[in-house]
Design a protein around this nucleic acid. Structure first.
Lengths: 188, 188
DNA sequence: CACCCCGGAGAACGACCGTTCTCCGCGCGG
DNA sequence: CCGCGCGGAGAACGGTCGTTCTCCGGGGTG
């Protein structure tokens, strides 16, 4: 068995885990459901991930990497400066409009298991930290005051949860609007 | 047995449910734990609430009423106008600093069971709707443009989840700062 | 061809949970 | 004083879940 097989199978397992965990929640999805969706036997699943907790943490880790990479790819297509910072909210708006959007996987996971599972809590904190650092870099690039990074983070975070609850994409537009106002204020 | 007894027992049940559900999550708390914390027998619990779902919904309903009443009491002590709108974030800051603060009960519940339980999803939406209406009224009182209500909602929402993840109260101060900037911008 | 090992399918196991049932004691109406 | 019904404690039941085990077939090796 080539290691390439292992990697491909692991990827399929994580694909199934991500789809199910994100759509239905962590505790609502049993290992059997992941086996059914991935076609990977329970035995093999437990060889790749020693426990459901480990699978959950691997799911969160990979989702963090992919989510941030997708955001970065999107905003890096814009010219550096205010445009690039504002593009964050265009990307959020596209995300909100995707079918099956159900809010931030890390916030959802933290609400469900953060109190019980230190691994889940740490993953959520790491994700938000990395997001915040990215925003701070964009704010610096836009020559805006550093405090704006916190404001932008709160607006993005609020837009994500509000979009999850209302099911629409307008929070992205509203948050972008607020950032534009804050930017014009800080440069006056 | 006087109905007053029933109400007192129901209140004790909801007290226990609120403490446990909020601290540990909905699915992590069994009916047995609520019986242990409240001292109310399972039989009586099921007489008051026909199912765990019903207890969860009653918990959310009561928490919504109390949360919004506490906020309203706090901000109504300030003079009408911008001060009153900004007081929302002072109140949030006090809430964040309370021991056991773990974010918005409705966002957490929605992340955990919103996909499975329509009742939980509806309760979360109703709570955010009512909060938004309250903010809109405060924005109108402050003679600020109506669009500011959405911006303030996003900042408050973002502050709540960010405070939950980082464990500090600064997001309230940062959000207040952003609202001040937006207010000064809109009146210039 | 015989052997062996790996992986798949699914049963099995132990724990837990929501809900109901049994049994018992206690207080009130005759 | 005698029943009788309500409430409490906890066992019981049915289902689910995480995890492990059993059994079996198939493919590579001598």
């Amino acid at each position: 068995m080539a290691p390439a097989d292992d990697q491909a199978i692991e990827a399929r397992a994580l694909d199934a885990a991500e789809e199910l965990f994100y759509a239905r929640g962590l505790q609502a999805v049993g290992m059997d459901a992941i086996r059914g969706a991935s076609g990977i036997s329970l035995k093999r699943l437990y060889q790749l991930f020693p426990s459901k907790e480990a699978l959950i943490e691997a799911y969160l880790r990979r989702r963090d990497e992919r989510w941030r990479a997708a955001l970065e790819r999107y905003v890096d297509d814009r010219p550096a400066g205010r445009e690039r910072l504002l593009a964050v909210f265009d990307w959020l708006g596209r995300w909100f409009a995707e079918p099956g959007f159900r809010g931030c996987a890390f916030v959802n996971s933290y609400g469900e298991l953060g109190a019980t599972s230190p691994g889940v809590a740490a993953a959520a904190r790491a994700h938000k930290d990395a997001f915040r650092r990215h925003l701070a870099a964009l704010v610096a690039e836009a020559d805006a005051p550093a405090a704006l990074a916190d404001h932008v983070l709160l607006l993005a975070e609020g837009a994500i949860t509000t979009a999850a609850l209302t099911g629409g994409a307008e929070p992205a537009r509203q948050a972008r609007e607020a950032v534009e106002l804050l930017l014009s204020r800080s440069s006056s």
